[in-house]
């Protein structure tokens, strides 16, 4: 009885893991014999789009950290009227279809939009447009992780720090933030990864300059799978390398902490 329980559990788990791994493995492995892969590796347009994607995702994540951290702290520490409404608003981007998010962003940041009409910064078909689209879809991930991080910090530490003469600012930067740092770093990493993978919202507000997901789509539509495959493989490989590297970094920190 116990045996069958674990057997079924393992079988189902293995299926899900395979389901995630298989498309990635097939995409990458088929490229090793594809002459188009080497060609794509030398293609400037591919590298430009990848660099642009990573750069825009970095800007979007930094913006999420700067503006999202205070909100995450407020939500984890204070109760105020309308708090659950604010929490709900922060989660809205998760449930909106991303093309719809792109249209909504266009209504605000488009050339005739609420902000875009007078803003000296151009959003449509420009880097700022990519960044706002990435930010819109990834900020809930960061907010939730950071809020959880601050929530895991015992309020007693902050209270004691204040009785030791520390101002609220000093307590925030020397106690709350360092103790929530792992959650914040993990949240930033996930938000960054989410930003890199965004296509739907970006394609509406900024088809050009092309981020990597748009380039893959464009190659697939214009030339087919043979042209899209190599670019896809490069993007997946790069994303995996960066993702695994940062995971190891964060994990290493965790291990050394628990060893002390």
């Amino acid at each position: 009885m116990r045996h069958s329980f674990f057997l079924i559990l393992t079988a189902f788990s293995a299926l899900i893991v395979l389901f995630i791994l298989l498309p990635i493995a097939v995409t990458i492995s088929t490229q090793f014999y594809n002459p188009g892969f080497a060609q794509a590796m030398r293609d400037r347009a591919v590298w430009n789009s990848i660099l642009l994607t990573y750069y825009a995702a970095l800007l979007s994540t930094l913006t999420a950290i700067i503006f999202g951290t205070p909100l995450a702290y407020i939500l984890s520490r204070y109760s105020f009227p309308g708090r659950s409404i604010v929490e709900g608003i922060a989660d809205i981007p998760v449930v909106i279809p991303h093309t719809a998010a792109g249209i909504s962003l266009l209504a605000v940041f488009g050339s005739n939009g609420l902000i875009g009409s007078f803003s000296p910064v151009k959003f449509v078909d420009a880097l700022p447009g990519i960044v706002v689209a990435m930010l819109f879809v990834s900020v809930p991930i960061y907010l939730n992780a950071a809020r959880e991080g601050f929530g895991s910090v015992d309020v007693r530490f902050e209270q004691v720090a204040r009785t030791l003469g520390a101002s609220q600012w000093r307590v925030f930067f020397t106690i709350s933030l360092p103790l929530a740092a792992r959650h914040i770093a993990a949240g930033a990493l996930m938000a960054w990864a989410r930003a890199i993978s965004e296509f739907g919202a970006i394609v509406v507000i900024a088809y050009y300059p092309m981020v990597a997901p748009t380039l893959i789509y464009e190659r697939y539509i214009s030339t087919g799978l043979s042209a899209a495959g190599p670019v896809t493989a490069i993007l997946i490989l790069l994303s995996l390398v960066v993702f695994v590297a940062i995971r190891i970094l964060l994990w290493g920190k965790n291990v050394s902490r628990s060893e002390r």
């Binding site: 015992d154 007693r156 530490f157 209270q159 004691v160 720090a161 204040r162 009785t163 030791l164 003469g165 520390a166 101002s167 106690i175 360092p178 103790l179």
Partner: peptide, 20 residues
């Protein structure tokens, strides 16, 4: 007065030593 201006030392039950 906020806690930082009172000059009162506080040792809570669990000590609340900063773990980092």
């Amino acid at each position: 007065l906020p806690p930082e201006k009172r000059g009162i030392g506080f040792v809570p039950q669990d000590c609340a030593l900063f773990p980092h």
